[in-house]
Amino acid sequence: MLLELNNIFKWVTTGGQRIFLLKDINLQVEQGEFISVMGPSGSGKSTLLNVIGMLDTFDEGEYNFMDESVYSLKEKHRANLYKQYIGFVFQSYHLLDDLTVQENLEMPLIYKKVKGSERKAMVADMLDRFNIVGKKDLFPAQLSGGQQQLVGVARALIANPKLILADEPTGNLNSKQGEEIMELFKQLNEEGVTIIQVTHSEKNAEYGSRIINLLDGRMV
């Protein structure tokens, strides 16, 4: 088991009233799964993803990631955990504008203190694998949306994560580009990477092995 959520609650208090963002979420994710999270706007999809990715906290419940209880971990330890095992892909790519493609890919490795020569090899490998060697010296602004997202996925993958969290990865792409990214995910999943994606599109959701539907913070 890769991760397990038991009775997760998350709320905000406004005007003395609790508004639940997540309500009693129970979820087990096995290694190698490809899960699609669906639901209307404001149903808590992204919040769930952020909680899983440890970018956000929860108020009640139990979350075990690789048999470690996330709730009891200190902030720093928790950060270590997600930095080591989780890669993120965003709807609006979120590449670092000031860095070239190559440098964007290199960044997570630098933070992981991978040695320079090794880093170069890994980056070259990734560029090769995603067929973007020719673009390595370009800045994000010089790439199309699809290409940027390609780099985004490559960056998420480069540190060999166990889990990829993708928040509407095709939301800003046209259908052809979107399809390419989904095919890529499918291929990665077949190679053994666990993926959880949030999506609005039924068609994209079909790529997953399991679909979770959320409504008002609940799983339905």
């Binding site: 970018l55 950060a79 930095k83 670092l96 960044m107 933070y111 992981k112 960056r155 540190a159």
Partner: peptide, 16 residues
């Protein structure tokens, strides 16, 4: 701010 957020999600520590 965006840069900071991003760098953190891709593995930067605060001291970095």
């Amino acid at each position: 701010a965006k840069e900071v957020g991003l760098r953190k999600t891709i593995g930067a520590f605060r001291n970095n």
